[in-house]
Amino acid sequence: MQALTNRSKVVSKKEMTFVEKLYLPAIFGGLMITVSHFFRKKPTIKYPEQKREIAGVFRGQHVLKRDEIGAERCTACGLCAVACPAEAITMTAAERQPGEEGLYREEKYAAKYEINMLRCIFCGDCEEACPKEAIFLTDRIVQADYKRNIFVYGKDLLVEPKDNPIDLSKRQTPEVKEFKHHTEYQHNQTFDKKQKIKAGGH
């Protein structure tokens, strides 16, 4: 019979020699192996002080971006909530009042925007669905906590602070933006549709 893999070994149960029966050389050899590990450099990363370098395309905690003048980009269209396979996103839309132009970019905005981080699977579909380039996943890790309701992140945690913009250059590289315009890939066809919606909206 042909072997499935070439990793199989024939087990031999031969009689042990006298030296092998003494066990002590084997024990000594084992001790030498373990002690050689004693002085080896440890691969441990001491987490809170040291952070492991994560991949550029890492998908972590979401951010709701602001535009150039600091107005929220999100227009509460709900496409992200529809795209979300885990149904983690909910929102309530509201109409922009006169004088709030600096706060919200479009005439409609999200009065309430919540992501349940326990439901979220960090697939990035919301980011892909968003026609306004408003929601992105970042390289930040969602903090652990003891209570479940703390993981429902509201706008206070999601919208980027005005004075501290979140860097997206790792995920939104020019190559990624370029790739998104190639409509011949099925992957990008929905995006293309969104582009049309976006063009129609303006």
């Binding site: 373990t34 590990h37 004693f38 080896r40 440890k42 691969p43």
Partner: peptide, 13 residues
């Protein structure tokens, strides 16, 4: 500590 060091870990710190 010794267990950790023999197993390429750091142990309680």
């Amino acid at each position: 500590k010794i267990a950790a060091f023999l197993q390429d870990r750091i142990g309680p710190d």
